[in-house]
Amino acid sequence: MFELFSDIYADRGNRFTRMDARAKLFAAAATLAAVIAAPGPALPIAVWTLCVMALLSIRIGVKMIALRMTPAISMAAVLLAVNMFMLGVTPVVQVTIGGWTLNVMKEGLHQGGLLAARVVGATGVLLFLGFTTPAHRIFAALRWYGAPETWVELAISVYRHIFTLIDAASDMYSAQRVRLGYTGARRAVGSAGVLAGSVLLRSLEQASRTHEAMVARGYSGNTVMGPLPPLVKTDAAAALVWAACVLSALGAVWRLGI
């Protein structure tokens, strides 16, 4: 699980991880907007290619990228299938399965293909952001952009405790497995329930201990969030240039209709 959280890779030192998180968040938001507004698949595919190339250049494995893309691609495939059989009036391919004739419609295929391209492009942007920015910097950047402080505080607290609990859950899961806890669906569900209950119980006990430790250190109800570092001007300029390029590309694809 630890290696599945993308931001474990963000602790490496490279040109992308050293960039200011606020600049990256701005650039990512502009790129996402352009991908969603794209009239055809050209821009999303180009964005995805650039993101994957950037990730490969900082030695993120192909397998990891493919693993991350799987859920998005599966959903895009479902939507492609639904769209091409249900939307439109111009049949392009006829498929007969067990006496049932299905018509693939041109309009649906176009719409489904566009959606799939947008999903792939947007997921590429998220992957780039997640693989190059640690969680605490993203939360700090969100606070800088005006996200509620209580939300940010709770998010940091949740994120921090996830790893403590995952460690405990993993040990319990291994113990259950060696005691044949997951043999068969029925037993697996029971074991999963007991594991979930144990994790919850552990979290409640840990919460009590954490509270006592916080009070011992002078906690009086306010969590002090440190000041944010000044925005790095070169990173901000790079993000602005990137956003301008992406939006110009969007204008171009709108004009060309691709």
């Binding site: 699980m1 505080e153 709770l154 607290s157 949740v158 994120y159 921090r160 405790h161 996830i162 403590t164 609990l165 995952i166 859950a169 979930a196 994790v199 919850l200 552990r202 979290s203 409640l204 840990q206 919460a207 009590s208 954490t210 509270h211 916080m214 009070v215 906690y219 009086s220 109800g221 969590t223």
Partner: peptide, 19 residues
């Protein structure tokens, strides 16, 4: 004062359970 760590930890536990 107990609620903040409680909410954070139960939130984390639910996240872990959901995974």
């Amino acid at each position: 004062l107990r609620f903040r760590p409680l909410a954070g930890l139960v939130g984390a536990a639910v996240f872990v359970v959901s995974c």
